[in-house]
Computed example of a mutant assay.
Amino acid sequence: MNKIMFAALIGASALAATPAAAQETTADKPFSGVYVGGSFGFDMQPNDRGESISFDRDLNGSFGDTISTATSPNAFSPGFCNGAATSNTAPAVGGRGCSNDRNDIAYYGRVGFDVQRGNIVVGAVGEFGKSNIKDSVSAFSTTPAFYTMSRELNWEASVRARAGFAADTTLFYGTAGVGYVSIDNSFTTGNTANTFSSNGNQKEWGLTAGGGIEQKIGKNFSIGMEYLFHRYEDTDYRVRASGGPTGGPFTRGNAAGTDFRRGFDYFRWHSIRGVAAFRF
């Protein structure tokens, strides 16, 4: 009888310990599993000091030509600024100059998964969202007139790897991967004598990389802070200036006109964001 009672006690103890052991195993891996979430933050652009607009006056695909007029060997001698023009007159000759590039908010949705082994966490995350930043460059001609090329972000999608170190319920991680964006290019000018056409929006591949910290709150929720750098090569946008009814300097090299392109190839920015996730 005593043997039977002893065996029953051992069995009951084992059953009681099973949920505790399972709970301990789950607690040992707080960052394993699939999650969905989002981010909200502020995006900032580096100062593209020295950026300019380049010209292809004979339409041979080679930029760097000088545009001349009947009275000036360089129609764009007033210069350039790394922002959107606010008047027809360049800052160097007394104009009001340029506004700064626009830094603004950004918001994204995300889905991902992580696998935790001890303190090491590896995984992947995909994101889709939008930033409201705007990047411009302006040229000023002797007319006087301004010529501003701008780009904004319609949307950005990215897939990144994640790897980090978990200290209890706090995760420190790095992340990097590829991105794909739709860029809304636009052109404005104070020149009313010529006609201008462009090839519209562009879609480009690039990279994103950064790091962050994530803190579990309860069993299924986490919040954190994240930094990301984004860089996309944006070299395909063109604006063509044609002569208009009276011709002009843009037709001196080729009767069809002159092509404009931005002198700086990259659309790039920094993100500081808060993140939140629900883990299944």
Rank of each mutant, 00 (worst) to 15 (best):
G118P: 00
R102N: 10
F140P: 04
S72M: 09
Y108A: 06
E24W: 00
I67W: 05
C81R: 06
G200S: 12
S32R: 02
R273V: 12
V125A: 08
G179Q: 01
K130H: 12
D28T: 09
G123V: 03
E51S: 14
V111K: 03
H270Y: 03
T170Q: 07
F278L: 12
V122C: 11
R110K: 15
G64A: 08
D56M: 09
Q45P: 05
R252F: 12
F42I: 09
T89C: 05
F280E: 05
N154M: 05
G33R: 06
E226M: 09
E233Q: 13
F6D: 14
R57D: 15
Y173R: 03
D56L: 09
P78D: 04
E51D: 15
S72Y: 12
N154I: 04
I120E: 06
A27V: 01
S68A: 15
K203E: 12
F140K: 04
N185S: 14
Y108G: 03
V36G: 12
P19G: 10
I133Y: 02
A176W: 06
P73W: 12
D168L: 00
N132D: 13
A193Q: 15
S13L: 14
Y227L: 08
Y237R: 08
Q202S: 14
G263M: 04
V36Q: 05
G38D: 07
F187V: 03
P144R: 08
C81N: 06
F128L: 13
A255H: 01
I272E: 01
R151P: 01
V111D: 07
K3N: 13
I183E: 05
T148F: 11
N191A: 14
A167K: 12
F280S: 03
Y173I: 01
A163N: 08
E226R: 14
Y237K: 06
T89W: 05
N47M: 02
S198C: 05
A145E: 09
R231D: 11
T195F: 08
G253V: 03
K29I: 07
R279I: 02
K134F: 02
R151D: 11
F196D: 05
S150V: 09
A145K: 07
S62T: 15
V181K: 02
G206I: 05
T148G: 10
N254A: 13
P30M: 08
S39K: 10
A16T: 10
I133M: 04
A124T: 11
T192G: 13
V122K: 01
A124D: 06
G274Y: 10
G61N: 06
G218F: 07
V159F: 09
R117P: 02
V125N: 02
N2H: 09
F278K: 05
T69E: 07
G112D: 01
S150R: 07
P78T: 00
I183L: 13
V122I: 15
D265Q: 11
A84W: 01
R57Y: 00
R57C: 01
R252A: 13
G274E: 06
T175D: 03
L153A: 06
A209D: 00
N103G: 10
H230S: 08
